[in-house]
Design a protein around this nucleic acid. Structure first.
Length: 211
DNA sequence: CGATGGATGAACT
DNA sequence: GTTCATCCATCGT
C-alpha cells in the first residue's frame, strides 16, 4: 500500500517574479523562506535565516562587477536560478535576482535545519543542529550542493528550490549588518539575518540593531 | 600545466 | 577583534 510513501507536502516554490526585484529587497524577503534539495527522493532543507545582497556592477564585492566570465556567467542569466561558486575549496550558493544581463544575486549564508537533518548530519559529521548549516560553505556541504547544481531553476521542485515560509518571522526580528568576508565595500549593511538566531553565522553579530 | 586567490571556517588574543 | 591552513577552480602562460 502507500504506508511507505512520502506523505509530506513540501513548501511550494516561489514564483519567478519574486526574484525580479533588486537584490537587497530579495535578500530581506528571503529571510523566513525555505531552501530545499531533493535527491533520490530524499529531501533536505530548512528555513533561511541569513542572506547577503550583491549589487552587480555598482558593487565591487560582487563577482559580476568585473564583467562576465565562465565562472560567474550564471549571475548574468535569468533571475530565479541558482549560482554556485567555489571559494577556499568549498562551495557557496546564491539566488540570481532582477533579470538576465544584470549580474545581481543574493548569497544564502545559513538556514535553520528542518528536513533531512540526519542526512545533513552524516554529511557534516554529526554536528549539533545549530552547527549544521551555519555559514555558506557548511550549508552547501550539509545540503549536498556543489558546482553541478550551478544554474538550476529555483522555481521548480526538481532539484534545488526556494519555497514559501512555514513559519512567520516578524519584520522587526530581521536585522542588518555589513557583509562577512569581503575586502571591498565592507561597510555597506547588505547582510540580513534573524536577531538572536543560533543558526546564524558570524561572531556575536546577534545583538546588532536594525537600521 | 603551474601559479594564484579567495563571498571560508576554525583557532587564536 | 585577529591570523592562517586549506585546496579546488580559474586564469594566464
Amino acid at each position: 500500500m502507500d504506508t511507505e510513501k512520502q506523505t509530506t507536502t513540501w513548501p511550494k516554490p516561489l514564483a519567478p517574479s519574486f526574484y525580479r526585484r533588486p537584490p537587497e529587497i530579495v535578500a530581506r524577503a528571503l529571510i523566513g523562506k525555505t531552501l530545499l534539495h531533493r535527491r533520490d527522493d530524499q529531501v533536505v532543507g530548512g528555513v533561511i535565516v541569513e542572506t547577503e545582497a550583491y549589487l552587480a556592477q555598482s558593487d565591487p564585492a560582487c563577482h559580476a562587477a568585473r564583467g562576465m566570465t565562465p565562472r560567474n556567467r550564471t549571475m548574468f542569466g535569468p533571475e530565479g536560478r541558482l549560482y554556485v561558486y567555489t571559494i577556499h575549496a568549498k562551495y557557496c550558493l546564491n539566488a540570481v535576482t532582477q533579470r538576465a544581463g544584470v549580474g545581481s544575486a543574493v548569497l544564502i549564508r545559513a538556514i535553520e535545519p528542518r528536513w533531512g537533518i540526519e542526512v545533513m548530519q552524516q554529511r557534516r559529521g554529526q554536528h549539533a543542529s545549530d552547527r549544521l548549516c551555519r555559514g555558506p560553505a557548511m550549508l552547501c556541504q550539509a545540503m549536498g550542493i556543489d558546482l553541478q547544481h550551478d544554474g538550476v531553476c529555483l522555481t521548480e521542485t526538481t532539484t534545488v528550490w526556494i519555497g514559501r515560509s512555514v513559519q512567520r518571522i516578524i519584520a522587526s526580528q530581521i536585522v542588518t549588518a555589513p557583509r562577512i568576508g569581503i575586502s571591498q565595500a565592507k561597510e555597506i549593511p547588505l547582510r540580513y539575518f534573524v536577531r538572536n538566531s543560533p543558526f546564524v553565522s558570524g561572531p556575536k553579530y546577534w545583538h546588532k540593531t536594525a537600521p
